[in-house]
Design a protein around this nucleic acid. Structure first.
Lengths: 124, 124
DNA sequence: AATATTTTACGAAGATTTTCGTAGAAAGGC
DNA sequence: GCCTTTCTACGAAAATCTTCGTAAAATATT
């Protein structure tokens, strides 16, 4: 499956957050942060359906769209792309960069430590 | 500064690895992994110079190019973009995804743990 | 000096992504 | 039923990114 474009990702985010939605609903959500015409959103969602990123069913006169790809698998895909294109495939250097420049809370850092321990367990 | 495109990033990688280089050298490096015409690389590097991503000086008849942006700041830029577009700004979830799907060595994991401890120290 | 090679500059084609106008179909209100 | 609103389909313009052909300038070779 091909990587979603930036605009496509925006739409996926809305659908992951809100669940299946009409074009109108998605467009209104997007319009909160920037101007975007209704038919622009419509066209993108039609294209995404052709590509297989979205599925739709008809309800009355409108279509209701839902994602066919999961959030985590998409995140994985984008992350893996970045890992190889910008970090020479070194996950640890990516992770350290990510942590270095983000003000993560103590709680989040503990969460990560916990995760590291589990990984270790599996390794042993 | 605008995010480099995929092709631009490839070129930056060569220059970060090898240091300042001619178009020919960059093109040869790129050609190791995929076919790409000499003038294609030339054109891209000219555009990157216009954009301010590269600088060049003349030596004899050829130009010698060098990056004006650092690898780490570019990584940071791309990471931050991904963080917000795909991970709702949650660095910990990005990090956990990154670790979960990469087979990092014990040593790398320890490196990360070490980094977490330093972050904690600074937090206190 | 004539010829060949290398490099640059330019422009434009091709591909992809993003945007929206227009027309027509579908539904609802009067 | 007729008018208004909402939605879809289509096509194409605009923007960005990628690719390369061609020609001219600079240099090297013989």
């Amino acid at each position: 499956m091909k990587k979603p474009t930036d605009s496509e990702l925006e739409i996926l985010q809305v659908l992951w957050d809100d669940g299946e939605s009409t074009v109108r609903a998605v467009n209104e959500k997007l319009s909160e942060s920037r101007h975007v015409g209704y038919t622009t959103t419509l066209k993108l969602m039609q294209i995404m359906t052709e590509k297989g990123l979205l599925a739709r069913r008809k309800e009355g006169k409108t279509h209701i769209y839902s994602p066919t790809v999961s959030k985590s698998s998409t995140q994985q895909q984008l992350l893996s792309k970045l890992l190889h294109s910008a970090f020479d495939g070194s996950a640890s250097s990516l992770v350290i960069q990510a942590l270095g420049n983000s003000k993560s809370s103590k709680k989040e850092l503990d969460e990560i430590r916990e995760f590291l321990n589990e990984l270790d367990k599996k390794k042993r």
